[in-house]
């Protein structure tokens, strides 16, 4: 060993590698806490040779600067959404598409597996440790939406991909930051919002909507990377790389389970508020799927244009989703 150490995780041991870790989730959010647990676990299992200071709440890099921040060394490690920098991840973008993601754990497992399998050029400069992703987006509204016709001309909050879905479904997409959405729903600036059910509790929006339409059939997701600067990674000796990789592999499911749990709590939250749940009939579900199909086609066309294996990626994702759905009771 390079340093004398009395015991693993001894607080007095001088760390050989100090890393900063930027997380955009607020510090008390379960995903930020899970990220902090990951950091503590890495520190502990490295015997104190690695020290990670976590900066949650986007206090070091904003959500849309996090990836670039990792590449440029603002933080050594970062957690944020691929979708916040549209165009930068032309292949991995598929992880967010409305493929009917069944739940957060499945989405998290599939996303991590596919990111590792394809490891595309677009992630050059950083090493992705793992990926996690939220459960399927649902439609929360002030007026009941039982069919596509009910959605026509409703104003729905959405940005980026979710805005595209709203438009494809015939609704009117209104873009605004998440913190403004509560007020906008309350005052009726928008009639609804597309989000994972967890958001209805996390951002309290459940207080100001009346109906929830189960749109899992076209469930989109948002994949989030946990990545380390490539040079920082390369500087680690093989045994420490091993430690980080092992802990990361264990935390894939922890994040996935946390997403599922958050969705369950979101569900309880809106149930206690007495909100009405609406399921779509199988025919109606088919219509919705048909409406969003052009979004998938556009992804395929853009990936093909850039010479990326978009079709393979999408097929793999769909196969894994079907597999997960089949395995469920």
């Amino acid at each position: 060993g390079r340093k004398e150490q009395s015991a693993a995780g001894d607080a007095a041991a001088k760390p050989e590698f100090k890393f900063s870790y930027s997380i955009f989730f607020p510090p008390l959010h379960i995903q930020a806490k899970t990220g902090m647990d990951w950091a503590a676990e890495v520190e502990q299992r490295s015997g104190g040779r690695i020290k990670i200071t976590v900066h949650p709440g986007a206090t070091l890099t904003k959500a849309d600067q996090c990836w670039q921040g990792v590449l440029n060394g603002i933080s050594d490690i970062g957690m944020s959404c691929f979708a916040y920098t549209p165009g930068r991840f032309p292949l991995l973008e598929a992880l967010d598409l409305p493929l009917g993601w069944p739940d957060g754990l499945t989405a998290t497992r599939v996303a991590t597996a596919l990111a590792a399998k394809y490891s595309p050029a677009e992630i050059q400069g950083a090493k992705i440790l793992y990926v996690h992703a939220h459960g399927p987006g649902i439609l929360a509204t002030k007026k009941p939406v039982r069919s596509l016709d009910d959605l026509r001309n409703l104003k729905i909050r959405g940005t980026g991909l979710s805005a595209g879905i709203v438009t494809a479904l015939g609704g009117t997409a209104v873009g605004m930051p998440q913190p403004e959405t509560y007020d906008a729903l309350q005052k009726g600036v928008v009639d609804g919002t597309f989000c994972p059910i967890e958001t209805l509790k996390g951002w309290k929006q459940g207080e100001v909507i009346q109906y929830i339409t189960d749109t899992k059939t076209i469930g989109y997701s948002t994949a989030m990377f946990v990545a380390i600067n490539q040079a920082a990674w390369d500087a680690l000796p093989a045994d420490l790389q091993q430690v980080v990789a092992e802990v990361s592999a264990e935390y894939v499911d922890k994040h996935g389970v946390a997403w599922n749990q958050a969705d369950a709590e979101g569900l309880t939250f809106v149930q206690e508020l007495g909100r009405e749940f609406i399921s779509l009939s199988p025919e109606e579900e088919a219509r919705w799927q048909q409406q969003v199909a052009p979004i998938l086609d556009r992804y395929l066309a853009q990936a093909a244009e850039k010479g990326l294996p978009g079709a393979d990626f999408l097929r793999d994702a769909q196969a894994l989703i079907a597999e997960a759905r089949a395995a469920r009771p």
């Binding site: 670039q68 920098t85 549209p86 165009g87 930068r88 940005t159 980026g160 805005a163």
Partner: peptide
């Protein structure tokens, strides 16, 4: 230059 190389675009209008 970084935006140009990475192909980064705006959220909705691309």
């Amino acid at each position: 230059r970084g935006f140009l190389d990475s192909g980064e675009v705006t959220t909705t209008l691309h």
